[in-house]
Simulated assay, not measured.
Amino acid sequence: MESDKENAEKSQIIDITRQLTELMIDRNITGLNKILDAGFTLTHITGYVQSKEEWFSEIESERMKYYSYTEVKTSVNIEGDKAVFVGQNLLDARIWGTRNKWRLQQTMHLEKRNGSWIIVKSVASTF
């Protein structure tokens, strides 16, 4: 049985991952920067590993444009000050010229620092 503390931690992690998606849609680079680690990387479904700076540039130029998402399923596994979040969304996005409703699964690794969860890396795949 999960404790109230563990449930609260899981809720915080789910909230921050939802916030990430909202900030992507809003093209809010300042907000994204607050919840992503300095060395954050995004691994795309193609296997391409992208730095935070390069990804931000793609969002700003709208080479990657996010429109909306529908959450399908989430899970969180916490071990100490590290966590793994797996989320499945139907993501309406235009990536490098192709617009689609992507069946996107994101596996995010997070670390708790100074009482806040920070997203260290995200690996995208399809489901």
Rank of each mutant, 00 (worst) to 15 (best):
S3P: 01
I29L: 07
I35Y: 00
G97K: 01
Y48K: 10
Q105C: 12
S116Q: 14
I25H: 02
T46I: 09
K121W: 06
F85L: 01
K73E: 14
E9Y: 07
L23H: 00
A93F: 13
Q50E: 08
K82V: 09
N114F: 06
Y67R: 05
T41F: 06
K73C: 13
S61I: 06
V123L: 07
N89Q: 14
M1Q: 09
N28F: 07
S125F: 03
K121N: 11
D37M: 00
R99N: 12
N28C: 10
T43I: 03
G115P: 03
M1Y: 07
R94L: 08
S51A: 03
D26R: 13
S68A: 13
G39W: 01
G39N: 12
N33V: 07
S61C: 04
W96K: 05
K5R: 06
Y69T: 04
L36K: 01
L110Q: 04
V120C: 09
Q19V: 13
I16K: 00
L91K: 01
K101Q: 08
H109F: 11
A93R: 04
S3D: 11
E62C: 08
E111A: 10
I118H: 03
I16E: 01
E2C: 12
Q12L: 09
Q88I: 09
E71A: 09
D37K: 01
Q106M: 10
E22P: 04
L104M: 14
R18V: 11
R18T: 15
I45L: 12
Q50W: 06
